[in-house]
């Protein structure tokens, strides 16, 4: 792959250039301490060196509030919500967030293929950027490295004084054509080291997690957990939702919308009459972690956790998913050792 060079002082010009071709969404400052993915109005506001955004690109394809239909109460008629392709450049995306979209593509395509999500997914040009692992990232443990270009049309790797640019697809060539990116003989630098690790690969985790159903770690985690659901809401591969009716102030009509929901919330499994099928926080933590490391990986061979570290970074109680999984691994190995 031929490497080109984008000097740091030309990033703004590059963003301006691609903005002429398509709408661009990219990480930008949000408040004092956060970076969020937003539509770019000022090319100078784009931040390419960042640890993580609180919300992933998921929000563009599965919005937190997503209209399904509009209804008219007078004649009981309805019209389906208008859903349009995103048709934009997603710039400055980390490899784990791109990998999360492969997972959501699977969820919204298998069984019944869903129009709402799959329509929005159309027309996206992906421009990735490498990241420097911080104290929460562990994507290396699930096979996603900071420099992975999989699924991107263009990829920027942080280097001295700028970015090494790989143009990977025709869509990437169309996007960058006409902008001067000189060739460089700089080699791609080694990706940064992770500070967090899960001690076993997914191929072994299926068995370990299967044997960890009654591990005390679930009860111990539940003692700390407050059941706020933050881990679900920031997870780039959580896609569960609830459906709500919103009636307008004139009570003439309204909308049926789906909103993000989370399996850590008590009401999640509640049925009419009050029965709750996962009433305990331990059961709910177990369900959350098993969904990431067992249930879907048994079927596909891939973990549904992409190692972004968000659930841990934003946990209000300091719960670490890496610690939970490693605890299951070490208990499993201890048990195996005593069994011999």
């Amino acid at each position: 792959m031929e490497l080109k060079f984008l000097a740091s002082d030309r990033v703004e010009a590059f963003v301006s250039y691609i903005m002429q071709k398509k709408t661009v969404y990219a990480p930008q400052r949000a408040g004092k301490h956060s970076v969020a993915l937003k539509k770019v109005a000022d090319p100078g506001a784009v931040v390419l060196d960042y640890a993580r955004t609180m919300q992933s690109v998921k929000k563009f394809f599965l919005p937190p509030r997503d209209e399904l239909l509009q209804f008219n109460l007078a004649d009981q008629s309805f019209a389906p919500a208008e859903v349009k392709p995103l048709d934009a450049v997603l710039l400055g995306i980390h490899s784990y967030d791109r990998a999360a979209i492969d997972r959501l593509d699977y969820n919204f395509s298998q069984g019944h293929a869903e129009r709402n999500y799959l329509t929005r997914r159309e027309g996206v040009v992906w421009v990735g950027v490498s990241f420097e692992p911080d104290e929460f990232h562990f994507s290396g443990s699930v096979g996603i490295r900071p420099h992975d270009t999989e699924g991107f049309d263009v990829f920027l790797t942080r280097a001295r004084d700028g970015y090494l640019v790989e143009v990977l697809t025709n869509a990437g060539r169309e996007l960058t054509a006409g902008f001067d990116l000189p060739a460089t003989d700089q080699a791609k630098p080694q990706p940064g080291h992770f500070h967090q690790h899960i001690f076993l690969p997914q191929a072994k985790l299926n068995e370990v997690m299967g044997a960890s159903y009654n591990n005390p770690v679930w009860e111990e985690t539940a003692e700390k957990c407050v059941g706020c659901g933050s881990c679900n809401i920031v997870c780039p591969t959580c896609y569960c939702f609830n459906v709500e009716e919103n009636v307008d102030i004139k009570v003439s009509g309204g909308t049926r919308e789906r909103i993000w929901d989370g399996c850590m919330l008590r009401e999640f499994t509640e049925v009419a009459g009050g029965e709750v099928f996962r009433g305990g926080l331990a059961e709910r933590q177990r369900h959350r972690v098993m969904r990431k490391f067992k249930y879907l990986s048994d079927k596909t061979g891939h973990p549904w956790c992409v190692g972004c570290g968000r659930c841990t970074a934003y946990c209000t109680a300091g719960i670490s998913i890496v610690s939970i999984v490693n605890r299951c691994i070490s208990d499993y190995e201890k048990h195996a050792a005593t069994a011999v």
């Binding site: 569960c240 939702f241 459906v243 999640f268 509640e270 099928f277 249930y295």
Partner: peptide
């Protein structure tokens, strides 16, 4: 089995029992 089958098409997650979607 009774569960909260909110979407009926294996997406919303509410009816899941371990790896199985009750609605599917």
């Amino acid at each position: 089995l009774e569960r909260r089958m909110k979407c009926g098409v294996g997406k919303c997650g509410h009816c899941q029992i371990n790896h199985s979607y009750v609605c599917q």
